Computed example of a mutant assay.
Amino acid sequence: MIDALTLDQMRTFVVVAESGGFRSASMRLSRAQSAVSHAIANLEAQLGVSLFDRTGHRPVLTPEGQALLVNARDVLLRVDAMRARARGMGEGVELELSLIVDVLFPLATVGAALKEMRSVYPSVAVRLAVSPMGGPLDGLINRRFTLGIMAGEEFADPAISRRALAEIQMIAVVAAEHPLGLNRPSATLDSPDLADHLQIVLSDPSQRSEGRDFGVLSPQTCRVSNQDAKYSLILEGLGWGRLPEWQVERDLAEGRLVRLPTDSLGRDSRLPMEAYLVHRIDEPLGPAARTFGDALSRLCGA
């Protein structure tokens, strides 16, 4: 009867298939070879099909065995996931880690920290959003996310706990073929020089910067809703703007972008901005969130 199938039988079946023989499987399972053979024989009797062709030197999966091996692996994977999730519930581990990241922070670093967290808590699901300016703060205040990464000091809030991670270097750049790039004077450009050209500016999806502009020097602006759009338009030569160093490092090295010779946006056109790991003060972090935070801090060298 199929109802009499056991997880042990299915696990034995998978190990035999992966090991290529009963003897190898018995060593992996730390069981007598006869016990492994008996388990497979019982499984075949219950399923009503032969899983292995035993006529050769080594058992070979039959077509039926190959098809059912997929099902067995799927069942075991789901059971293992269920066990891990139940264990996490018992330990107070979160079912999901929700994270909103400022567009200025490198996602590769976030991904590396999430990978470390998942290696410890594989049952924890991840929900990730990327947002500029006041977006991460809104996400935490409105309880849509557990953790956030914010850049700069403009959106500090007493309800939000902050942990410094790393310094992001913002650099004023322009495409090499843009007039500001082609005709770079030896002298430093002043604000009026930059104001003669279109500035690519990131819009705030929240209302937290309403009535304020950060680093906008030109009356001619092109406002975009995401960082990729800003980067692409600057790279295409539409206008100038500030971008994080990690995003433009290769373009600067290979000559597609050039640094603007201006002190109007920081010395040497460079302005440091601190990045923070943030969460609501009234919502303590669970084990997975703490593990992620520690990994991220270490990766950032904080």
Rank of each mutant, 00 (worst) to 15 (best):
T291A: 13
P244C: 05
E94I: 07
A151H: 04
R270N: 05
V79S: 10
G20M: 03
S191N: 11
R259P: 01
S209G: 10
L114V: 06
T291Y: 11
R85P: 08
A275C: 05
S203K: 14
V174H: 03
A295Q: 00
A229I: 08
E64S: 14
P261K: 02
V124P: 11
S225L: 10
P192F: 00
E153A: 12
L77E: 15
E245Q: 11
L285E: 11
V126E: 05
A108D: 15
D204Y: 04
R78Y: 14
L99Q: 07
G266A: 03
L180P: 05
G241R: 09
R73L: 05
A172T: 15
D251M: 12
L198H: 07
A113V: 06
L299A: 13
S297F: 10
A195E: 01
P287Q: 08
F214V: 15
E44W: 06
T146K: 07
Q169E: 07
Q46C: 01
R83A: 15
Q33M: 12
E116N: 09
D251T: 11
G266M: 10
S206I: 00
A302S: 09
G134P: 10
R78E: 15
R250Y: 08
S264I: 06
V16F: 04
P63K: 05
G241Y: 02
P185G: 09
D3R: 15
A86C: 10
I168T: 00
E210M: 02
F145W: 03
M273A: 14
T109W: 12
I234G: 00
M89Y: 09
F22N: 01
I141F: 11
A288V: 00
V248K: 01
P106T: 06
S161Y: 12
A151Q: 04
A86Y: 07
L76N: 12
T12N: 04
P261R: 13
L235F: 12
M10T: 09
V126L: 13
L5W: 00
R118F: 04
Y121S: 05
M27Y: 15
R118P: 09
M27P: 07
D268W: 04
V49W: 01
M133F: 01
E245F: 12
D268Q: 03
S24T: 07
V126Q: 05
L198M: 11
S98D: 11
G237F: 07
R78G: 09
S203H: 15
L29Y: 08
E245V: 02
L202I: 07
R184T: 07
A229W: 01
S209E: 07
M170L: 15
D204F: 06
R162G: 09
T62L: 09
L299F: 14
R242Y: 03
I234Q: 00
A4Y: 01
